[in-house]
Amino acid sequence: MGINMPLANHKIGNRQSAIGNRLKLAGKKVLVIGAARSGIACAKFLVARGATVALNDGKPIEKWSAEAVALQDDGVGCLPGEAPSWLLDNIDLVVVSPGVPVNCIPVRYAERAGAEIIGEVELASRFLKGRVVAITGTNGKTTTTALIGELLKDAGLLVQVGGNIGTPLITLVEGSRDDGWVVVELSSFQLETIKEFHPSIAVVLNVTPN
C-alpha cells in the first residue's frame, strides 16, 4: 500500500539554496588523506573539477587498491607514507577520510600553514542539490536510513541513499537535483569533519558508549 507523504512541495528549506557556499575547486591544490573508498571518490570528484590532487595513505603503495593506484592515470599524485612538509606548506584544502584522526601531525601541520580541513561529507554538502535527511546515532543508523529512503521513494519522490551505508556521499552529487532528496547515514567519524553542513532534517537515534 502506498504511503501518502505530501513532501514534494513541503516547505522544508532547500539546503543548497540556503547555504549557497560551493567551493571553487579549479586550480586548488588539495590533499586527500586516506586511500580507501571515501578518499578515492573524493580524489575523482576533485580532479574532475580542475583541482590538483594528491592522495596520501600511510600504507605502502603495494597495499593500495588497484582503483586507488589507477588514479595516477588521471593525474592524481599517489603518496604512500607520511605526507612531506613541503607539500603540506603549499596545500589549499585537506580532505580527511573517515577514521583518520583530525589531530594527526599532517592535518595539524597543514592547518597551521593555512589549509582548510574538511571531510568527504562536508565537501559533498557544498555541492549537493535538493534536501538532505541525515541520520546518526550509535545503533540503528543503517536500518533507519534504508527505511526512510524507501518511504520517500514510495511517496514518488526522487531519492538517493548514501553515506556510511556504503555509497560515498560525494558520488551522489552528480545525480542530485533541486527537487530531489538525499538520505545519508553518518558515523561519528564523518561528523568530526563537518563545518557548514546543515541537513534539512537531522535524526539522532541514540547515543551510548561503543
Rank of each mutant, 00 (worst) to 15 (best):
I201V: 15
K59L: 04
A48V: 03
N9Q: 09
E185C: 02
V161H: 03
N210D: 15
T193S: 15
K59V: 01
T193G: 06
S97F: 08
E67T: 06
A155E: 07
A68E: 05
A202C: 13
I105P: 12
I194T: 13
I201E: 05
K44W: 01
G163Y: 11
S176V: 03
S97G: 02
A83R: 01
V107W: 03
L172K: 14
S125R: 01
I105T: 15
K59S: 02
V183T: 07
G140S: 05
G58S: 13
L55N: 07
R49L: 03
W64V: 04
N164L: 04
I91D: 01
V184R: 04
R131V: 05
A70N: 09
D89K: 13
C78P: 09
G149E: 03
V76W: 03
P209M: 04
G27P: 02
K153L: 09
E174G: 12
L88T: 05
G114Y: 00
R112Y: 09
G2V: 00
W181T: 00
I117C: 06
L55M: 07
D74N: 14
A110C: 07
G20T: 06
G58W: 04
L7S: 01
I105C: 12
L123T: 09
E196W: 10
L158D: 08
A134H: 12
D57N: 11
L157Y: 15
I61H: 05
A48P: 09
L152M: 11
A115D: 01
L128C: 09
S17H: 14
P199A: 08
N21P: 01
L87N: 04
V203A: 13
V207T: 15
L169G: 06
A35N: 04
L7N: 02
L128E: 08
V95A: 01
H10Y: 11
L23F: 15
S17A: 14
L147M: 14
N164P: 01
P80C: 08
D92R: 05
A18Y: 14
R112L: 07
P60R: 03
T145A: 08
A146E: 06
P84F: 01
S176C: 05
V107L: 14
A202M: 15
D74F: 09
I135S: 10
K195G: 05
G156R: 00
G20F: 06
P106W: 05
I194L: 10
I91Y: 00
G20H: 07
N139I: 08
I12C: 12
L93F: 12
I19D: 09
K153T: 02
I12F: 15
D89P: 06
P84W: 03
D89I: 06
V32C: 07
K11D: 14
I194G: 02
L46P: 06
I201P: 02
C104M: 14
A110R: 01
E192W: 03
A51G: 04
M1K: 03
C78T: 14
F197Y: 15
E150Y: 00
D178R: 00
G39V: 08
N90R: 13
F127Y: 14
V96P: 00
R126I: 00
G81Y: 07
S187M: 12
C42L: 09
D73H: 12
L128H: 10
G13V: 14
V107T: 04
G114M: 04
R177F: 01
I3E: 01
L46T: 05
R37N: 11
F127H: 10
E174P: 09
W64F: 15
R37S: 13
